[in-house]
C-alpha cells in the first residue's frame, strides 16, 4: 500500500469504512489517523495501520502460530488460535495491534441490546474478546475478488475497503512485487519511504511525503 500524505484530507473515511467492513467493536480501530500542524498554514496527516512487514516480528514472537503471514505477504491473526499473551503487541515496532478486552467490546450502545448491524456483524466477524486484532488488508475481499479473476488495487471488489472509500485517492493498493504496478511506480517516482527502517522489518506500507509533491 502507498499512502500519499499530500492528498490525505483528514476525513476519517478510511476509519469508518474499516469499521463498517469488519463490524469493528466500539473500542477497536484498525487504521488510525493523526494530524500535525507544522505551522498555522500547514497541516500534515499520517494515516497508519498494520504495516504487514515482510519480516514481521509479531509472526516470530507469537507462541501459538496464531499470527501468520500468507504467501502474498498479508499478516493476519487467527483468533481461534490466539491465546491473548499480548507479546505481539509489545513486539510490534509500529504499535498497530490492539488487544480486544471486555471494555473495548461494550456494544455500540452500552447497556442496550445489540443493534441488527452488530448482530449480523457477530456472525460474519466474530471478534473474540481476549485476543489480539489488527488490520488484515481486507483479505476476505481480496481472496473473493481474486477467485472471480479480479485484480487487487485495480478492481474495487478485490481492494481493501479503506482504499475504495478514500475520497481524495490518498491510498493506493497493489502488488509490490510487480515492477509495473501503480504502487511500485509511485514508490519509484515519488521516493516512497517506509517508517522505522532501523527495525529491519521491511514494511509493506510506503508513504509519499508532501515534501516531494509534484516531483
Amino acid at each position: 500500500m502507498v499512502v500519499d500524505l499530500s492528498k490525505c484530507m483528514r476525513c476519517h473515511a478510511c476509519i469508518a469504512a474499516c469499521r463498517v467492513e469488519h463490524f469493528l467493536p466500539l473500542g477497536m480501530t484498525w487504521p488510525r489517523l493523526i494530524a500535525w500542524e507544522e505551522n498555522e498554514a500547514e497541516l500534515t496527516t499520517f494515516p497508519v495501520r498494520c504495516n504487514h512487514c515482510q519480516d514481521a516480528p509479531c509472526v516470530k514472537v507469537c507462541p501459538t502460530g496464531a499470527t501468520q503471514q500468507r504467501e502474498d505477504g498479508i499478516v493476519w491473526v487467527d483468533q481461534d488460535r490466539c491465546v491473548g499473551c499480548r507479546y505481539c503487541i509489545i513486539a510490534c515496532p509500529y504499535q498497530n495491534r490492539t488487544y480486544l478486552s471486555r471494555d473495548r467490546d461494550t456494544g455500540y450502545f452500552p447497556g442496550y441490546e445489540m443493534t441488527e448491524f452488530e448482530k449480523v456483524g457477530r456472525k460474519l466477524y466474530p471478534h473474540t474478546v481476549g485476543t489480539t486484532e489488527k488490520c488484515n488488508f481486507c483479505m476476505e475481499r481480496i481472496d473473493e475478488g481474486i477467485s472471480r479473476g479480479l485484480k487487487p488495487g485495480k478492481d474495487r471488489a478485490a481492494t481493501p475497503a479503506c482504499v475504495n472509500t478514500c475520497p481524495s485517492r490518498a491510498l493506493h493498493f497493489g502488488d509490490l512485487d510487480d515492477p509495473d504496478s501503480e504502487v511500485r511506480q509511485l514508490i519509484r517516482d515519488r521516493r516512497g519511504f517506509q517508517l522505522h527502517l532501523e527495525h529491519d522489518t521491511d514494511p509493506s506500507i510506503y508513504y509519499i511525503d508532501k515534501g516531494y509533491r509534484g516531483a
Binding site: P63, T64, G65, C82, G84, L100, V129, G130, T131
Partner: peptide
C-alpha cells in the same frame, strides 16, 4: 492470558 484455556496451544 486472554484465553487461558487455550494454553495448550503454546
Amino acid at each position: 492470558f486472554g484465553k487461558p484455556f487455550r494454553f495448550w496451544r503454546t
